[in-house]
Amino acid sequence: MILTATRLTYRINRFEIRAVLLAAALSVAVSALVVSWINSSGYVACINVYDTPSLKCLELMDIGRWATRIASLSLNLVPVFPFLAGLLLGTPVIARELDRGTARLAWSLGPSRMRWFVQRTSPMLVVAVVASFAIGFVAEWLVALFTPDVDLANSFAAFHQRGVLIATGAFLVTSVAVGLGAIVGRTIPTLLLALVLGGAGMLAIGEVDHKLLAAEAVPLSDSGGGNDLQLDSRFQLPDGRLVTWEELMVIDPHAMESEFGIQYPWVALGIPGTRYREVETREALIEVAFGLAFLGLGAFVVGRRRPG
C-alpha cells in the first residue's frame, strides 16, 4: 500500500520530481567527471601550486582551467539548489491539489486527511533531501579536491556550500512551500510567497545562527588559517581587554594619530574550525525543526480547511 501510494505520488508530480532528480544527477555526473579527470590526469598536483609550474602542468593547464571553472560554477550553484528544489517539489503537493480540485476527490474518498497528507508530502521530502544530500556530498568532494591540505571535518571552508546543510535547507524550503500551499491553496501565489518567505526564513535562520555564534566567538589564533569562521574583530588593550573601534576611540582618542597607524594589536574573533561539525549539526537541527513546524502547520490546516 505504501509503495503504491508512493508510486502514485511520483506519477502525480512526475514533472517536478524528474526535473529535480535530473538536475541533481547532471550536477553529480559533471562533478564526478571533473574530479575523475583531475585525479587521473595528474592535474591534482598542479592545484594550489604557486611556484613555477611543471611541464606537465603547463600541458594540462588549458583543460585544467576549464575543469576548475566547471567545478567553481558547480560549487556556486550548490546553495541555490535546495531553494529551487524545495520550491519545485513543495509547492504542488498541496497547493496544486487544492487549486485543481483533486484534493476534494481525495478527501471525499479517504476518511483520514492526514493519511493523504503523509502520502503526498513524504515522497517529495525524500526526493528533496536525497537529491540535495547528493549535491552537498559532491560539493564536499570538490572542496576537498581543491583544498587538499584542509581537514573539512574541522574547517569552515565553503561553509553553507557543502555537506548536510544542503539537504536540511532543501527540507526546510520544501516544508515551507507545503505549509504555505495548505494555507493559500493556489499554486502561483504559493510559489511566490514561498520564494519570499523561504528566502527570508533562511536569511533569518542565518542571522539568528550568526548571533548565536557571535556570542560564542573566541579570539582566533593565526594557526587556524582558513579553517576558522571569522565573525568579528577587536583591538587588544595592554591589559588584555578586547575592545571595538568605537570603544577604543573613547579610551584612547589619539590612537589614530601615531605615524605608524594604530599601535594596538588586532584580534580576529570567531569560531575555531574544530567546532565545524558541532555548528553544522546545530544549524541543520534548527532547519529541520523549522521545517517540521511548517509541516505541522500544513497538516493542521489540511485537517481543518474546506477543500476549495
Binding site: L8, R11, G101, T102, L109, S112
Partner: peptide, 22 residues
Amino acid sequence: PQSPSLYGGLSVAEHLRLAATL
C-alpha cells in the same frame, strides 16, 4: 462532485488504486 476533478496525469486504473490507498 459536480466537477469530478480527476488527476489528469493518472490513468483510470491508477485512480482506482489511488482510492484503495486512501
